[in-house]
Simulated scan of single mutants.
Amino acid sequence: MRKSFYQYLMTLRDPESHDEIAQFANNAFFDQSFPKLEEAYEPLSKYLEENAGYLPSMTIFDATFQKYQEQAQAL
């Protein structure tokens, strides 16, 4: 069974890190409305564009989503 994007993102959390992706994961953890079961790019992108003031650039999401897809293909 494929992990949702949120489940994948939570594996990247690191409160001690200053890495942009780790910070994205840390902040998404506290976002109660984050679409936790979503796997598709478009709904996630739309949600983040409209609701994620904690994400300084959508390129961070794009890079993270690309890694998510690569991991899913490797399984």
Rank of each mutant, 00 (worst) to 15 (best):
M1A: 02
R2K: 11
R2D: 10
K3Q: 05
K3T: 04
S4L: 03
Y6L: 10
Y6H: 11
Y8N: 05
Y8L: 06
Y8T: 04
L9M: 07
L9A: 08
L9C: 10
L9E: 03
T11F: 02
T11K: 02
L12T: 07
D14T: 02
D14E: 06
P15D: 12
S17R: 02
S17E: 07
D19A: 14
E20N: 07
E20I: 10
A22Q: 01
A22F: 04
A22G: 03
A22Y: 00
A22W: 00
F24H: 00
F24L: 14
F24D: 08
F24A: 07
A25N: 08
N26F: 10
N26W: 03
N27W: 06
A28P: 10
A28D: 03
F29A: 14
F30K: 13
F30M: 14
D31M: 11
D31T: 09
D31A: 11
Q32I: 13
Q32R: 10
Q32P: 02
S33Q: 08
S33E: 13
F34P: 00
K36S: 14
K36T: 15
E38F: 12
E38N: 05
E38S: 14
E39T: 15
E39V: 15
Y41C: 12
E42G: 06
L44Y: 08
L44N: 03
L44A: 11
S45L: 13
Y47T: 12
Y47P: 08
L48I: 15
N51E: 11
A52N: 04
G53I: 04
Y54C: 09
Y54N: 08
Y54K: 01
Y54F: 13
P56N: 02
S57A: 15
M58L: 13
M58R: 00
I60M: 08
F61T: 13
F61S: 11
D62Y: 09
D62K: 09
D62T: 13
A63L: 13
T64P: 02
Q69S: 11
Q69V: 15
Q69T: 14
E70C: 01
A72T: 07
A72R: 01
Q73P: 01
Q73A: 14
L75G: 00
L75P: 00
L75E: 06
L75F: 05
